[in-house]
């Protein structure tokens, strides 16, 4: 197996163009498992850790460009204030050792529906920066993840970063696992309030072939909030509307039975999580007024 280790972005893209079969590696928390379990025997591995554009994040006009190699630990410690939903999701990933190594770009590359970082990206309409020697393109995350373990990456392309607006309102992430730490999501929910655009973003994790935006539920709750002038009054969302929101989210899920949980439980649980996370986010929004 060849180990390719380019030093900068240009070189890395050229290498990928020359070796489209090379498997990119940053933290290795997915790639090394595949190698160790003998699921993959790639001819070459392409190390991305030396490329600053992939490693770093920056902030401009209240938008963030976050390099694909930013680890979960850094998302918690450095981005917790700007992207609280992503930080909460990152806190639920694996163990401290995994969070120190694993990257958000890895979640995008693996495209597992259980990737914890994905729902927060969906809930805030993140764009994925994809680069090759042919240039850079921006793909909305919802289009980037195309199916279970598949994404829109072409053979010569690499995920270099994602672009996301910094939080303008409360965000939440909640995840179900049969134990209280170090667990792959049975199902999860990411939620973000966007008061400036008067929008509610939600995303179901691990209860479908890809993360799922429950558009009908989002539209419903945005309608309720508008109708009652709640963005301005910051009054409580009626309990019946919270229930209905949960039910619509549950309906939007496309879960299956597998070793980690049953379809019916997943559908039930994402509904509960949707109601709870919206309640928590809205309570925070109401408190922020004071």
């Amino acid at each position: 197996m060849e180990f390719l280790q380019p030093a900068d972005l240009r070189e890395v893209l050229e290498t990928k163009a020359a070796h489209p079969e090379a498997v990119p590696i940053f933290g290795g928390t997915d790639v090394m498992v595949d190698l160790n379990f003998d699921r993959e025997r790639p001819g070459a591995v392409l190390d991305l850790t030396r490329v600053p554009e992939i490693r770093e994040w920056s902030r401009k006009d209240r938008r963030l460009r976050v390099g694909a190699g930013v680890t979960y630990t850094r998302a918690i410690t450095e981005l917790g204030g700007l992207l609280p939903g992503l930080a909460m999701a990152s806190r639920t990933v694996g163990s401290p050792q995994i969070r120190n190594r694993g990257t958000i770009g890895g979640n995008l590359g693996s495209a597992s529906p259980a990737g914890d970082a994905l729902p927060p990206l969906y809930a805030s309409d993140a764009g994925i920066e994809v680069a090759s020697v042919r240039g850079v393109r921006m793909v909305p995350v919802e289009e980037f993840i195309t199916g279970p373990r598949t994404n829109a990456l072409r053979p010569d392309e690499l995920i270099t970063a994602f672009m996301i607006p910094e939080a303008r309102g409360p965000q939440q992430y909640a995840k179900i696992g049969p134990r209280n730490a170090m667990v792959i999501a049975v199902c999860s929910l990411g939620l973000a309030l966007h008061p400036e655009s008067r929008a509610v973003g939600a995303c179901i994790g691990s209860a479908g072939p890809t993360p799922i935006r429950p558009h009908e539920a989002e539209g419903f709750i945005e309608g309720v909030i508008e109708e009652h002038g709640l963005w301005e009054s910051r009054s409580e969302i009626p309990a019946s509307a919270l229930e209905r929101f949960g039910a619509l989210v549950a309906e939007a899920a496309k879960p299956i039975d597998d070793v980690r949980g049953t379809a019916s439980y997943r559908r039930h649980a994402v509904g509960v999580l949707a109601r709870r996370t919206l309640t928590w986010a809205w309570d925070e929004y109401r408190r922020d007024a004071g």
């Binding site: 909460m88 806190r91 639920t92 939440q172 992430y173 909640a174 995840k175 179900i176 696992g177 209280n180 730490a181 667990v183 999580l273 709870r276 928590w280």
Partner: peptide, 15 residues
């Protein structure tokens, strides 16, 4: 959160 069912996965704040 560590003192609640679900732990840091943030599934309940006591509900």
């Amino acid at each position: 959160l560590r003192e609640l069912p679900g732990g840091v996965s943030n599934t309940t704040h006591g509900e």
